Amino acid sequence: MLVAIGSDHGGFCLKEEIKKFLAEKGVACRDYGTHSTESVDYPDISLAVAQAVAAGECDRGIIVCGTGIGVCIAANKVKGIRAALCHDVYSAQMSREHNDANILTLGERVIGWGLARMIVDVWLKTEFAGGRHRQRVEKICALDKLL
């Protein structure tokens, strides 16, 4: 699995910790920035990560900002992306199992590193359940054609 990862300045420190965690788990990642705590515009980072996932260059993506909200909104503007903001383990599991989320967004100023680690771990391990959820995800994907 190859994970696209990115953050704005408000999520930089958590992004760096997540990169270390992914390396420990043997999960490869591609960093789309930012590379410091200097101010950047989060839509630019979200777009880069979302395009990499949508194009199939990366299997999934993780984006971090201060709250996780802005990067989630921006990523979901890209056709084929199902980004989920998760600040608890159950939501992370359900975002994968029921919604086949392909991008996880997190807020560095909202959750601590220990919780973020558990969320990322569950999100990476959880597979899409398919079944009755498949037709719902297909309807979500069909919305891309309306735009």
Rank of each mutant, 00 (worst) to 15 (best):
E57K: 09
N76W: 04
Q51N: 15
T67I: 11
G66D: 05
K77R: 10
A84V: 02
R96N: 06
G114A: 14
N102Q: 07
G61P: 10
C86W: 02
G66Q: 04
D144K: 10
R117K: 13
T105L: 01
F21L: 15
V53H: 01
C86G: 05
T34D: 02
A52K: 06
H9V: 13
E38H: 13
V122M: 11
K145P: 12
E127D: 15
A28R: 12
D41M: 03
K19Y: 08
C141S: 15
G10W: 08
A23R: 10
V49Y: 01
C13I: 12
D121G: 15
S39A: 06
S7L: 09
L115D: 03
D31F: 01
R132L: 04
D121E: 15
R82Y: 05
H133F: 10
F128A: 04
G114C: 11
C72L: 09
L124Q: 10
H133I: 07
A52S: 02
A84Q: 02
T37M: 12
A48H: 09
I140V: 13
V71S: 12
A54H: 07
K139E: 15
A75Q: 05
A75P: 12
E38G: 01
R30W: 14
W123Y: 14
S36P: 14
Q135W: 01
G130T: 07
I81T: 01
G6T: 04
I5K: 00
V49K: 00
S7F: 03
I62S: 02
R30N: 14
D59E: 15
L143P: 10
H35C: 09
Q93A: 12
K25E: 15
E17Y: 08
